[in-house]
Every structure is written in structure tokens, then in C-alpha cells.
Design a protein around this nucleic acid. Sequence first.
DNA 1: TCAAAAGTGTTCTCCCTACACCCATGG
DNA 2: CCATGGGTGTAGGGAGAACACTTTTGA
Lengths: 230, 230
Amino acid sequence: MEEKNYCYKYPHPSVTTDCVIFGYEDMKLKVLLIERGLEPYKGKWAFPGGFVKMDESVEEGARRELKEETGLETNMIEQFYCFSDPQRDPRERVISVAFLALVKMSEVHGGDDAANARWFNLDEIPQLAFDHDRMLRMALQKLRERIHFRPIGFELMPEKFTLKQLQMLYEAILDVRFDRRNFAKKMLHFDILTQLEETVWPTPKREAYLYSFNKEKYDELKQKGFRLEF
Amino acid sequence: MEEKNYCYKYPHPSVTTDCVIFGYEDMKLKVLLIERGLEPYKGKWAFPGGFVKMDESVEEGARRELKEETGLETNMIEQFYCFSDPQRDPRERVISVAFLALVKMSEVHGGDDAANARWFNLDEIPQLAFDHDRMLRMALQKLRERIHFRPIGFELMPEKFTLKQLQMLYEAILDVRFDRRNFAKKMLHFDILTQLEETVWPTPKREAYLYSFNKEKYDELKQKGFRLEF
DNA sequence: TCAAAAGTGTTCTCCCTACACCCATGG
DNA sequence: CCATGGGTGTAGGGAGAACACTTTTGA
């Protein structure tokens, strides 16, 4: 018999965090999911997350759970919505603060510690537990919103990349197609990209310049507020 | 001796809502605050809010508390951040979901039921309880963000108004000045305003047309997504 | 007769869009 | 020699910003 030592005058909900983690690889936007081993929703997939401890903020909790369950760490993690439908968890009242996180898949390969964690393409999402399908839709919406105001590529791209690669990231996230030349002009115009000496041969046809993000310019623009039209 | 009948295996935080309520009157953006009658922070001012019940979502809780504590109801209320610093409440662990609400002050005058509730101009905010000063700053930021994508005037303006009045609302919220003619052109261009037959004499100098919002056009634009540049 | 408020229109400029040309490589 | 991919430049259109004229009233 388990002991219940924490007693209150009024009923208290549980508070959890859930992390919608986006990555980018092979020209595809991907999401990290964990297969549930326990009821309810056993065998279904869900976002990593867990209970918030009494001595940590929800941000700290989200980062901790992310690390514990997947081994991943990230610079970009932010809350985007609090899910609080009284019936959202069949066991008990659980209020969950959902986070949007971005990771560089190029750096963390094999970093998905949990054996039951897997990256999914957006068009191959399996059935999700709880209200996590709605969570995913809202996270994606938030990501698309964010991309207009912040050069999120910073967090999803490898250190060095070609303009084409960056364009494909934007196209994957927004699900649109851009004109090659206009896209380059627009990105270079903000001065947040540094053209490197280095080149690569993305195809055997022709070599392409590599670029890196200019963190200083980026931080400067983040302060002023900047708007990227698409 | 009070009884504590709700027991859990692990400690649970309390979950509350807080409402940052904006109104607009006398060419000023205003915020509704309630004076605290109890410790902690007795005598300090705070946003209306309270504990979330077990059978309601945070949205429902926020609306309920708003109604209970101020008598106000609103169409526009949305969460904007979850405040969760473990130390934010000196009594116990309290996680609060903060809401942004807009009310038409022209319709609710005298509607502040609570004797200890008062509207404050933004430049006359008294000392606030808990982390509510940070809450206010973030709410204001969110409001300014929102105004670029939604004709929030709907919720803050009276039914009928002049272009000048609408302009002054935008100027009050964003703390900038606009060219009279360009502002009118921009607003009319979206087709969300209906020019009425009616006129008023805002000054004894000359009469001005009254306008009302065109809800249909507004809903149409809200779906498509629209962007108001400033 | 003059100042103040409001209604209306024009021009300039810049940025976004669409689109074309050049060059190098591998087959 | 030609198809493919990538680097660069140009013309047109639309929307925002700057700006001027007219009308009406009260002092």
C-alpha cells in the first residue's frame, strides 16, 4: 500500500511539462516522440515530459525531462500553451505546460538515449496519446509564427550550410516554395549570414558557398525586433 | 483545526490564474487592479485571479474569477504565459497561468463590483504584489504584438467611434504617433470599418464621421491571417 | 480673419516579385 | 554538347511614408 503523505485542504491538480521537439534532417522537418510503455495509451506515442518538481520552474522541469528522457539539450526551448482540459488525462487532473524546442540533429545523432524514442517525419506521425495531436498542431503553428520574427535556422541548421539548405528548411517548415534568388537576397539583406571561404559540392554539378550565422548581428536584430516577410 | 482531506503520494503545486485586464478611456490605456486585503502583500495591488477548480480549464477559471472579483465579462481573453518560479508566492508553491483580457470600458462603467478594484493609467501603476510587475510588462508586450495581427480595437472601442479615436487608441497602445491620413488610409484599406451616416462633433471645430467595426470582414480576415504594419 | 480640426489626394521611394543570363561540371 | 545546379542582375508593381489643399466653425 502506497503512502500519501502530502495533504491539502483543497484538491490540487498535477502539473507536468510536455516538449514538442523539432529537428531537421534530409530536407525534412522532424518531431521526436516516445513510445508509452504503460497505460493509459500504452503503445501510443507521446511527447517527452513529466511532473514538475516543487523546487523547479516549468522551464527547468522541461529541460530536465528532455535531458532525462532523450539525452538532448537545446538552446531554444519556450512555453507556448497550457493545456488544462479537466478530462485530458483519464487518471487524474493534470495540467500541462507545453514547450516548443529546437535541436540540431546534425550534432546529436545517436543522442536519443531512450530506446523507445524516435524521430518522425511530419507526414508520418503515428497515433498520439492524450491531447498530443492538438499539442503538435499548436506547436507547429507557433513554430511557423516564430520563423517570421526570428532566424530560427540558428537552432536547426548545422554550423555551416549552403543557401539552398537554408531555403529548404524554410520551405519544409512553412510548406511553401520560394524563388531561389529572391530567398538569397532576402536572407543576405539582413546581414545575419556570413559567407565563408569554404565551399562544398552539394551535387556533382557545381560547388556552392558555405555560410554560417552571424550571432552578433542576430542578437542585435533580436533586440530591435525584426520582421521576415514571406 | 482545519482538515486536510486531499492527499497525494507526491507534493502538488497550487494552480491559479491571473488576469491582466486592459481598458481604454480618455485617450489612455488602463489596467484593472485589486487592492489586497490580506497578507502577504497586504495593501499592495494585484491582478484579479484565483485558484483553478478541479472541474474547469484555466480559461474557465480565469473567466470565473474575472466575473467574481470585478463583475466584468469579456470576449477577448487568452493565456499568454505560465509563471512558475518556485519562490513567487511566499506561502506555498503556486503556479499561475496569466491571461490577457480586453474590455470595453464604455459599456461597463460602474461594473467594477469589487469596492477595492480600480482602473489605473499605465504611467500611474502602484506597487504590485508577487511577480505582477513582470506580468504586466509581459502582458503589455503581448498586447502590442497582438495589435499587429488582429484589429483588437473591436474589443476596446465603443460601438461607434471616429477615426481619430481609433488612431489615438493605437497610439496609446504602441506609444507612437501616426500621420492622420496614412492611418485612415491603412485602416480603411482592410475593409473592416463601416462608415456610418451618423456624425459627431468631437470638437466644436468640425464634425466627424462615425465608424463601426465590420464583424464579418473581420472574421474573414482573421481566418486568412492578416498583417497590420506600423 | 485666423487658427484648429477633419476630409481627401498625390508623389516618391523602397521592397517584394517575377523573370533571364552566365558559368561550370558530368554524362 | 547538353542538361543540371548554382551564382548574379534587372524591370515592374504595390504599399507605406511624406506631404498639401480644402472646408467649416468659433473666437
